[in-house]
Computed example of a mutant assay.
Amino acid sequence: MFGIMLVVIEFASDVGEDDWKKFHSFLTRIGRGSKIIIVSKIKRIARFGTVKEISLSGLSHDELRYLFKALAFGSVEPTEHPRLVQIADDFATVIHNSLVSLVATNMFTDVLRSNLNVQFWRCILDKAARMVKRNISIYGVNPTMRIEQGRQVDITDIALHPLSLKFYSVNASIKTELPSVTFGKLIKDPSVRPKGDFILMAWESRISPYKLFPSYVTSHAQDTDQSSALPGRKRQGVPI
Rank of each mutant, 00 (worst) to 15 (best):
Val192Asp: 03
Arg65His: 14
Val76Ala: 15
Lys166Cys: 11
Ala104Asn: 11
Pro82Gly: 01
Ile4Cys: 13
Asp90Tyr: 03
Lys43Asp: 14
Lys41Met: 09
Asp223Thr: 08
Ile95Val: 15
Arg44Thr: 11
Arg134Cys: 12
Phe68Ile: 00
Phe183Val: 05
Trp203Thr: 05
Ser228Phe: 14
Ser60Ala: 05
Lys22Cys: 11
Asp62Arg: 10
Met145Arg: 14
Thr144Ser: 11
Ala202Lys: 04
Ala229Lys: 08
Thr156Asp: 06
Val141Pro: 07
Phe198Val: 01
Ser101Arg: 02
Ile38Met: 14
Pro239Trp: 14
Glu80Asp: 12
Ile9Pro: 01
Ile45Glu: 03
Ala172His: 10
Ile4Phe: 09
Lys43His: 10
Ala92Glu: 07
Val111Ser: 00
Lys21Ile: 13
Gly74Gln: 05
Ser205Asn: 11
Phe2Thr: 07
Ser208Ala: 11
Val118Ser: 06
Ser191Lys: 06
Ile4Asp: 10
Trp203His: 15
Asp62Gly: 03
His61Ile: 10
Phe11Gly: 03
Leu99Thr: 07
Ile37Val: 15
Ile174His: 00
Ile95Glu: 03
Ser137His: 13
Ala129Asn: 12
Pro239Phe: 13
Thr218Gln: 13
Ile207Leu: 09
Asp89Gln: 06
Pro179Ala: 00
His24Phe: 11
Gly237Ala: 15
Gly184Cys: 10
Pro78Leu: 00
Lys127Asn: 07
Leu6Asn: 10
Arg134Pro: 05
Thr93His: 00
Ser205Arg: 01
Lys133Ser: 15
Ser219Cys: 09
Gly184Ser: 13
Gln149Ile: 03
Asp110Asn: 14
Ala12Pro: 06
Pro214Gln: 00
Ser13Pro: 05
Leu71Pro: 01
Tyr139Trp: 01
Asn135Ser: 08
Ala92Leu: 04
Ile45Arg: 04
Thr109Trp: 00
Leu125Lys: 09
Ile147Gly: 05
Phe183Asp: 02
Val51Gly: 06
Leu59Ile: 04
Lys35Val: 13
Ala46Thr: 08
Leu99Glu: 09
Leu116Glu: 08
Phe48Cys: 07
Ser169Thr: 13
Ala12Met: 06
Gly237Lys: 13
Ser34Gln: 06
Arg193Trp: 05
Phe68Met: 02
Ser215Pro: 02
Phe198Pro: 03
Lys127Cys: 08
Arg151Leu: 15
Val111Ala: 00
Tyr139Val: 01
Trp121Phe: 01
Leu160Met: 13
Pro143Tyr: 03
Glu53Trp: 05
Asn171Gln: 12
Met5Thr: 04
Leu163Met: 15
Phe167Gly: 10
Gly232Met: 12
Pro239Val: 11
Ile38Leu: 15
Leu56Trp: 08
Pro194Leu: 01
Leu212Asp: 09
Leu56Val: 13
Gly140Met: 02
Lys127Val: 04
Trp20His: 03
Val103Ser: 11
Leu112Glu: 04
Gly33Cys: 06
Ser205Leu: 01
Phe108Gly: 03
Met131Asn: 07
Ser60Asp: 04
Asn106His: 02
Arg122Asn: 09
Arg235Lys: 09
Ser25Phe: 02
Leu178Ser: 05
Lys22Ile: 09
His161Asp: 15
Arg32Ile: 03
Ile136Ala: 02
Ala46Gly: 04
Ser227Val: 11
Ser180Leu: 06
Lys211Ala: 14
Val85Cys: 13
Ile38Asn: 08
Phe68Gly: 01
Ile174Phe: 00
Thr79Gln: 12
Glu10Asp: 15
Leu230Ile: 12
